[in-house]
């Protein structure tokens, strides 16, 4: 039984390769869908025509969009990928606290981090940073500000020596 099955299968494959000279678009689409399933990529519709894959649908973010494209390109026989995926609209960010509270928190956090040259003012969750801090501290000071729950930044902080 097993031998018979294998024989039928080989004949089928031989005929198929003879007829198409390669994988059909339907096979390529299936291969991409299998790859997506293995990589846990969901929400993507695949269409393949003449070896060109078109991806449509909505995914979580730009990283997911890029991941799907890379996965599809990795499938043997795919000539190119048209990535028409869209990303989910983002919810609106809400500031972590009212402006005076944020100003107080950032000022205190900056002081603790030794970022004494930086000054902040917050308006509607958006912080404007002015002043100057040393180059060695610069990235750390920006981190402190961005980790305070703000929703916008105008960074005019100067990077000193």
């Amino acid at each position: 039984m097993r031998i018979k099955f294998l024989t039928v299968l080989s004949i089928a494959i031989a005929l198929f390769i003879g007829a198409c000279g390669g994988k059909s678009d339907a096979d390529l689409a299936k291969a991409i869908n299998d790859k997506f399933a293995a990589d846990k990529i969901t929400g993507v519709t695949v269409a393949v025509k003449d070896g060109v894959a078109t991806l449509t649908g909505e995914v979580a973010d730009a990283a997911a969009k890029s991941k799907a494209e890379t996965a599809a390109k990795g499938v043997e026989g795919i000539k190119s990928v048209t990535n028409s995926l869209t990303t989910k609209p983002l919810p609106v960010a809400t500031p972590a606290a009212a402006d005076p509270a944020l100003t107080g928190k950032i000022t205190e956090d900056l002081k603790k981090a030794g970022c004494t040259g930086a000054n902040v003012s917050v308006a509607s969750g958006k912080v404007t940073v002015t002043g100057e801090v040393g180059a060695a501290k610069y990235a750390e000071c920006v981190q402190v500000i961005m980790q305070s729950g703000i929703t916008g930044i105008d960074n005019q902080l100067k990077k000193g020596k």
Partner: peptide, 17 residues
């Protein structure tokens, strides 16, 4: 974002100012 996915950082995206 790709790096975050690779190194196990979980994140949420929102749109600010």
């Amino acid at each position: 974002l790709e790096l975050a996915n690779q190194n196990g950082t979980t994140y949420e995206l929102t749109e600010g100012d």
